[in-house]
Amino acid sequence: MGDHHDHSKTFQPDHPEPTSDDALLGLALRELLIDGGYFTAAEEQAVIEKMQGASPENGGHIVARAWKDPEFKARLLDHGSEAIKELGFDLSPTEFTVLENSRSIHNVVVCTLCSCYPRALLGMSPAWYKSKNYRARVVREPRQVLAEFGVELSSEVEVRVHDSTAELRYMVLPQRPAGTEGWTEQQLAALVTRDSLIGTQRTLTTG
């Protein structure tokens, strides 16, 4: 193999070998950190698997509990990071923050500086969330951007844009759809979509 370096101990075998300079630099840095004892390849793999296990379903679970249990909802809105530990989710040291939609308020989340997202809870963010178009426009013309997602809001509804500029990670608590009285938490959780947790969808449908 000549001077080909063996990445087998540090690189995920199902990934192709990187070809760009940036990807090679990232790989080299990771190998140096592992060689230096900062973390092990097994620890890295555990984090990757935890991230891959995350999905919007986790958000649906939290939302459904909040709809069913007003006291949990109060704790969730007051200090999200602590409240979700009750359901087995731990995002510390990130400050997990939940934003409640109501008839008069609509929340939408963005990260203008990069693409911050509660990934360890909700999984990978959608491609459009990372696009320059969404990031640049939703802060200055949120109503137009929301309309493109099919969310038309009257001028009596206050739009709150949340720019994730530092340590907080946000999730929207959408409104509970009408006609779901008596539904189980599991049934309610299934109504919640990824976009409703970001705020680019306002109305959840019961099918």
């Binding site: 200055r140 013309e141 739009v159 709150r160 844009v161 907080l168």
Partner: peptide, 29 residues
């Protein structure tokens, strides 16, 4: 210490076309 601060969209963008109610929140040290 980190703060979440709230801006009025109509103050932030001179050409803002939305409602006077609209806000923008961000985190600032």
């Amino acid at each position: 210490r980190l703060y979440r601060v709230r801006l009025l969209q109509r103050e932030l963008w001179p050409d803002y076309r939305g409602s006077h109610l609209d806000k923008l929140d961000l985190e600032v040290f």
